[in-house]
């Protein structure tokens, strides 16, 4: 209960709620688009660097490798489960269900960052290699969704004007993957000494920048929800809430099998429970252009992201503590 209250009353969640409320009340407030993109890159650089520095202290062993492989497997598997649940419980057609399912196998880096803050507030610590896990979980879900869609023959046609390498470039070289992995490697190479030299920019202002970004996320989520909620039926809305819980339970099992410490387990569970709204929507527009963005974006950004941020995080930390206690 204390963790839930501390999460709910943290500045990042309150700024998110401010943005969400303002957008739902039709406030005209905006954060300039280029500035918001800059903030996203800043956050990814910062957590990539911090993760790289932690790895440079010698954290990357076989255990970490096993967790990475398990996480990739989870990212391949989750869209299959999400697709089956969407087809069973909603009226979405195959293409919309496959596109939405891809979002639930991939990850939300902002939810990951918020989880990092929440586990620190709960007195837990997480290993730096989890940043690499986050980057690795961006892509497999997209491949799973393409396979699902292709089995129904809905995404195999060649679109006029398309270029052979464009989808591979978008999937493998999108900003999240490049910046996260790039900053991780830079942090690994430069170590603690390198981090000290950039700490005034990447460490001290981090919390404030995160608040600003969450305010923008709240505005985006609120406006997306206001414009897109009519496209979602009750079954689809319910999916946006129960699918993160299904993913979290599966990830809890993976964390238990790998005997992960509570902080690491909390981040892995959060990654599995989160839904992408940056890398996957862009890939879906290229790979499955007939899928409706008003469905998958409203679902991942308007329903699942607020749910995870406000109610999910305390639950995932609790699950991680249970796993850790059980393992110990």
């Amino acid at each position: 209960m204390d963790i839930a209250l501390a999460t709910l009353l943290s500045p990042i969640v309150l700024f998110f709620l401010l943005g969400l409320g303002a957008a739902l009340l039709r406030s005209q407030m905006t954060i300039p688009e280029a500035f918001a993109k800059g903030l996203a890159i800043y956050l990814m650089m910062s957590i990539g660097l911090k993760g790289g520095v932690e790895i440079s202290k010698g954290q990357l062993g076989w255990d970490a490798g096993l967790v990475m492989m398990s996480a990739v497997g989870l990212s391949f598997l989750l869209p299959v489960i999400a697709f089956a649940l969407l087809r069973l419980t909603t009226r979405l057609d195959r293409i919309d269900a496959a596109a939405a399912a891809a979002h639930y196998g991939s990850i939300s880096i902002v939810t990951f960052v918020a989880a990092g803050q929440a586990i620190a507030a709960a007195g837990l610590e997480a290993a730096g290699y989890l940043v690499a896990v986050a980057a690795l979980m961006e892509v497999p879900a997209i491949i799973s969704a393409l396979v699902i869609a292709n089995r129904g023959g809905v995404s195999s046609e060649v679109v006029a004007g398309s270029d052979k390498g464009e989808l591979a470039r978008e999937v493998l070289l999108n900003a999240s993957v490049v910046v996260l992995l790039g900053a991780l490697v830079i942090g690994w190479i430069t170590g603690e000494a390198g981090m000290q030299s950039v700490a005034p920019f990447f460490v001290t202002p981090f919390q404030g920048v995160l608040c600003l970004f969450l305010l923008d996320m709240g505005l985006s989520a609120g406006r997306g929800l206001r414009n897109g909620w009519r496209q979602l039926g009750p079954g689809t809305i319910a999916f946006g809430v129960y699918m993160p819980l299904v993913s979290a339970l599966l990830a809890t099992g993976v964390a238990a099998l790998n005997a992960m410490p509570a902080g690491d387990a909390a981040l892995l569970i959060t990654l599995a429970a989160s839904a992408s709204y940056i890398a996957v929507p862009a890939a879906m527009r290229l790979a499955m252009p007939k899928a409706r963005p008003s469905i998958y974006l409203t679902l991942s950004l308007g329903i699942t992201f607020p749910f995870n941020l406000i109610l999910g995080l305390p639950l995932y930390i609790w699950l991680a503590k249970m796993v850790s206690a059980g393992v110990a």
Binding site: E33, M217, S220, G224, P281
Partner: peptide, 15 residues
């Protein structure tokens, strides 16, 4: 035909 769209609502800028 399907929905309202706005640059501000999509953080991925994909739509």
């Amino acid at each position: 035909r399907q929905a309202r769209w706005n640059r501000d609502t999509d953080i991925s800028a994909s739509s």
